[in-house]
C-alpha cells in the first residue's frame, strides 16, 4: 500500500458526518445500513441537516435515530406517514421523511400509507422491502413472494391459503396524490448510485409541493432468508426482481407505461 496517497487532498470517499460513529446493530450485509448512509449523504449534499425531520418506523430500522444526526421522531407501528403529515403541516418549510420496512408500511400501516399518498402530502417515504418481517424472526409478510419460505410459511407461501403478495408501490403510484414513485435496490455499486439519485429526487420534490414521493428499495434479509449476504443478494436478483422489478413507476405525476417496453 502506497502510504503517500493517504492525505487529505486525495480523499474521495469518507463516511458522511450526518451519520454518527455508533456501530449499527444490523446484521452483516443488511441493506438498511446502505440506505441510511444514502439518506445521510443526500442530506449532507443538499445542506438540509438542520431542516430535516425523520420519522422512524417499528422494525429493525426503529433505531435509525441512533445513527443519523438529525431530528427524528418514533411513530407507532405503521403510523409514520400520519406522523409525517402532522410534522409537515405544522412546519411546511422542513423536509420530512419516513423510513419504513415492509411489515410497517405494507401491513399494519397500509391505511396510513394509502391515505397520506392520496391526500398528496409533501413528504418523502422510503420503503425497504425484504419480503419478510425481519426483526421478529422472519415471519411471512404481505410482500412475501409466492412459494417463498418464511418461518410462518415453512413449505412456501401458498397463494390459495395465504393470499397474494401486495405490490403496494404500484398501488400508491395509481393514486392522484403521489408525484414520484420508484423502485430501486442497493446490491451493486450502480444500483446504489441510482438509488441515491432517487432519494435526492424525493427530497427535492418537497420543495415543489406537488405530492408524495415514495422510493421503494428492494433489499435483502440474509438472517431471515438464512443465507450469506452475497447469496442473499443473488437470491434477491433471481427471485425478488422478477416480481418487484426495479425502475421508475411514476415520474412527475405521470405513470411510466411499462407495457410498452
Amino acid at each position: 500500500m502506497d502510504k503517500t496517497i493517504v492525505k487529505a487532498g486525495n480523499l474521495v470517499y469518507r463516511r458522511t458526518p450526518v451519520m454518527n460513529d455508533n456501530v449499527m446493530h444490523y446484521c452483516p450485509g443488511c441493506g438498511h445500513g446502505t440506505v441510511h448512509r444514502l439518506i445521510a449523504e443526500v442530506i449532507e449534499e443538499m445542506d438540509i441537516q438542520s431542516e430535516t425531520i425523520g420519522i422512524a418506523p417499528v422494525g429493525c430500522s426503529v433505531l435509525i435515530y441512533n445513527y443519523l444526526e438529525i431530528d427524528m421522531q418514533e411513530a407507532a407501528h405503521g403510523r409514520a406517514p400520519a406522523l409525517a403529515t402532522a410534522a409537515k403541516r405544522l412546519m411546511p418549510e422542513k423536509y420530512v421523511f419516513t423510513y419504513q420496512g415492509d411489515g410497517d408500511l405494507a401491513a399494519i400501516g397500509t391505511a396510513e400509507t394509502i391515505h397520506a399518498a392520496n391526500r398528496g402530502e409533501d413528504i418523502s417515504v422510503f420503503f425497504i422491502n425484504n419480503g419478510i418481517y425481519g426483526m421478529t424472526g422472519g415471519q411471512m409478510a404481505p410482500t412475501t413472494l409466492p412459494g417463498m419460505v418464511s418461518s410462518t410459511s415453512p413449505y412456501g407461501r401458498d397463494i390459495k391459503m395465504m393470499g397474494n403478495p401486495l405490490k403496494i408501490t404500484e398501488l400508491v403510484a395509481r393514486l392522484p396524490g403521489a408525484y414520484f414513485v420508484t423502485r430501486q435496490a442497493v446490491h451493486t455499486p450502480s444500483s446504489v448510485r441510482k438509488a441515491k439519485k432517487a432519494i435526492r429526487r424525493a427530497f427535492e420534490n418537497q420543495t415543489h409541493k406537488k405530492g408524495l414521493s415514495l422510493v421503494e428499495i428492494v433489499s435483502n434479509c440474509n438472517s431471515g432468508w438464512k443465507m450469506t449476504p452475497v447469496e442473499a443478494n443473488k437470491w434477491m436478483v433471481d427471485n425478488m426482481f422478477p416480481f418487484y422489478p426495479p425502475g421508475d413507476i411514476k415520474l412527475n405525476g405521470k405513470l411510466v407505461n411499462k407495457e410498452k417496453e
Binding site: D2, G33, P189, R193
Partner: peptide, 28 residues
C-alpha cells in the same frame, strides 16, 4: 483488507456498497 493494493484505482465501489460505511477511499 487490501490483498492486492497495487491494483486499486480508488473507484469507491467498495465504499458505496458497504452497509456499515467503514471504508474511506483516497485516490491520486
Amino acid at each position: 483488507c487490501m490483498k492486492n493494493p497495487d491494483a486499486c484505482t480508488g473507484c469507491t465501489n467498495c465504499a458505496i456498497v458497504c452497509p456499515d460505511g467503514v471504508i474511506m477511499v483516497y485516490r491520486e
